[in-house]
Structure formats: structure tokens, C-alpha cells
Computed example of a mutant assay.
Amino acid sequence: MNDAVRVESLYKTYDNGVTALDGVSAAFASGTFTAVMGPSGSGKSTLLQCAAGLDEPTAGRVFIGGTELTATKDTARTKFRRGRVGFVFQDYNLLPSLTVEQNVLLPLRLAGKRRKDPKAILGRLGLGDRTHELPERLSGGQRQRVAVARALVTEPAVIFADEPTGALDMRSAREVLTLLRAVVHEFGRTVVMVTHDPVAAAHADSVLFLADGRLAGSLARPTAEAVAERLAHLGDLTTRIAA
């Protein structure tokens, strides 16, 4: 199985001296759903941002679909990201003045690609009758489904999701997580999701744990209970790995 994303020896140190990533290496296989978890300040969001090309690591390499993102210049990196990477954020990041359809098609416009008919994607996500609505007329769960559709429209190599259910109620969160699984198993995409919620992580194929900017283990076929237990003992796990 090919890797959709691979990071090698990633370091990220900020101007204030804080090290957010301390030599992280990881691979995310094509067609898989991985949750990234860890305590606040563990480096999980920084890992996602560096892997997605939104932030530049201090050292290390990032590969997406075999292309080394860290070897490209800013303009080329932006162009590559628009065509090959999808994003789903906690706060949706929809433009309020654009309709559902216009929001979904925006990445194609920015990438200079030919317009597609988004009806198939929107229909699959339960939004077929909301194409001409503005975001303010949608529920939180519906807005996040629009964000998922927007992430899919460019047929990216990978979709990065940063706390995609953090602002949703339990029912809407479950619907969005089910859709992210469908993105993997029906659309064949790769999803890397940062979350703090063991229930959300249990929808993934595997969980990658971080602590203090370092890898602190992984868990295949996770359950919410197993994830919560692993998080509770993360300090012990980090000690054993360091040893």
C-alpha cells in the first residue's frame, strides 16, 4: 500500500524557543483514516499543519503522494496544496456570502481548474436540496458537510481534518464522522484527523499518539475505551518509548 503522506524527522521550534515537534516520523497509507491525539501542547495540530504545507517545519521532510512538499518554493507549494490537499476545520471556514454550491466549488476556482457539477457529492452528503442556500441557513452539522464536500471536490490525495466535530452536538458529530469514514471507504481518500475526543478517534482505522512533540505510540482498530485508557497513561507510554 502506497503512502499518501509521509513525514521524516520533523522538527518545529518557534521563535520563543518552544519545540512543538521533536523528530517526528510517520506514514499515512493511502485509503486509511488516522486520528492524531495527545494532550494540549503535544504537537498534534502542528504536525497536521506541517504535513499539510500550511506551516513550514524547522527541519525534516514532508511527502504527499510521492512529492516532497518541503522541497518546493512557497508559490509552488500553494498551487500543489490547492490541487492535492483538502481541509476540514472546526469552524467550517465557509464564506457567508457564497451559496453551498459556490463554497464547494471555490477550491476549483482558486486552483484554476475546470468547474465540476457538485450535485453528486452534495447528494451523497445529504445536501442535494440545499445547493443554493447560504451557510447562515444551515445547521452546524450541515455546514461541516459542506466543508467535507469542498474538501473532496478537487479529488485530493489526502484530507486533513482539525477537530472537525469540536463545535458540533453529539448527533451531528456522529454524522460527520460517518461521512469521513465514507470519504475513505467509498471515495478512496486518505483522512488524517486531529481530535481530543476518544469517541471521535474510535471512528478511525488507527490512532497516532503524541506527547511533548514526540511519537508516543499507536493503536489499531481503536475503541473509545481503549483510546481513553491510552491517553490516561500517555506519560507512562512516553517514558517507555524514550527508554
Rank of each mutant, 00 (worst) to 15 (best):
N2F: 07
V5T: 06
V5A: 06
V5K: 07
V7G: 06
Y11T: 02
K12D: 02
T13N: 02
N16A: 03
T19Y: 04
A20S: 10
G31H: 04
F33Y: 13
V36R: 06
M37I: 10
P39Y: 14
P39K: 10
P39H: 14
S40Q: 11
G43A: 11
G43F: 15
S45G: 12
S45V: 12
L47G: 05
Q49H: 15
Q49A: 14
A52Y: 11
G53S: 11
D55G: 12
E56W: 05
P57R: 14
T58Y: 07
A59S: 15
A59H: 10
V62W: 03
L69T: 08
T70K: 04
D74M: 04
R82N: 09
R82P: 02
R84K: 14
G86H: 09
V88D: 02
Q90D: 10
L94A: 08
T99N: 02
V100P: 01
V100R: 00
L106M: 15
R109Y: 04
K119D: 13
I121H: 04
L122N: 08
G123N: 09
L125Y: 03
R130K: 03
R130H: 01
H132W: 03
L134P: 02
L134N: 00
L134D: 00
G141Y: 00
Q144V: 05
T154W: 10
A161T: 00
A167T: 12
L168F: 01
S172N: 09
A173C: 05
E175I: 02
V176L: 01
L177T: 09
R181D: 09
R181I: 08
A182T: 07
V183R: 07
F187S: 08
V191P: 08
V192F: 04
P198F: 03
H203Y: 14
H203L: 00
V207A: 04
L208E: 15
D212A: 11
R214S: 15
A216C: 12
S218I: 09
A220P: 09
R221E: 13
A226E: 15
L231Q: 12
H233S: 12
D236Q: 08
T238P: 01
R240A: 12
